Amino acid sequence: MNKILIIEDELVIREELTILLKNAGYLAETVLDFDDCISEVETYNPDLILLDINLPGQDGFRLCSSIRSFSSVPIIFITGRDTPFDELQALTLGG
């Protein structure tokens, strides 16, 4: 069964994604401690990460770069931001 890690700080979005993914047969885990996302990624070892850009402490772009330093896990950015620069930066960083 595929494991998906959700890194999203908005409670409603995080809960809805978790419910939808579990109902579709995935193992969905969420990050609640945004100061320690890297260790949660290493511990959970997901098959996919759903990553918000606007997070407390550090943004999703910086977190994506940190994850890319040790993992090639697919990362999909989930965000309300829609500028071409955001899209380019997400793709450039490996999302």
Results as ranks from 00 to 15, higher is better:
residue 68 R to C: 02
residue 27 L to Y: 11
residue 23 N to D: 11
residue 48 L to Q: 01
residue 87 E to I: 02
residue 82 D to K: 04
residue 69 S to H: 11
residue 80 G to W: 05
residue 62 R to E: 14
residue 52 D to Y: 00
residue 61 F to D: 08
residue 68 R to A: 07
residue 32 L to S: 07
residue 83 T to S: 04
residue 66 S to N: 09
residue 88 L to V: 09
residue 53 I to E: 06
residue 89 Q to D: 12
residue 26 Y to D: 07
residue 23 N to M: 13
residue 77 F to H: 10
residue 85 F to K: 00
residue 24 A to M: 12
residue 52 D to W: 05
residue 79 T to S: 10
residue 28 A to V: 11
residue 31 V to F: 14
residue 38 I to K: 02
residue 30 T to R: 10
residue 34 F to C: 13
residue 38 I to C: 09
residue 53 I to P: 07
residue 59 D to C: 06
residue 77 F to N: 10
residue 42 E to F: 02
residue 55 L to G: 00
residue 58 Q to S: 13
residue 44 Y to Q: 15
residue 60 G to T: 05
residue 54 N to H: 09
residue 67 I to H: 08
residue 85 F to I: 09
residue 79 T to I: 06
residue 54 N to T: 02
residue 36 D to G: 10
residue 85 F to H: 02
residue 32 L to A: 04
residue 41 V to M: 04
residue 42 E to C: 03
residue 90 A to W: 00
residue 44 Y to V: 15
residue 91 L to G: 03
residue 24 A to Y: 09
residue 63 L to K: 03
residue 76 I to D: 03
residue 27 L to N: 15
residue 65 S to T: 03
residue 39 S to M: 07
residue 32 L to I: 08
residue 27 L to V: 08
residue 43 T to S: 13
residue 56 P to W: 09
residue 60 G to W: 00
residue 39 S to T: 15
residue 26 Y to K: 05
residue 81 R to N: 12
residue 82 D to S: 13
residue 64 C to W: 06
residue 32 L to C: 06
residue 29 E to D: 05
residue 60 G to C: 00
residue 42 E to N: 11
residue 84 P to W: 01
residue 52 D to M: 04
residue 72 S to C: 13
residue 39 S to P: 10
residue 66 S to R: 09
residue 38 I to E: 12
residue 74 P to S: 07
residue 57 G to R: 13
residue 83 T to N: 00
residue 88 L to Y: 04
residue 69 S to T: 15
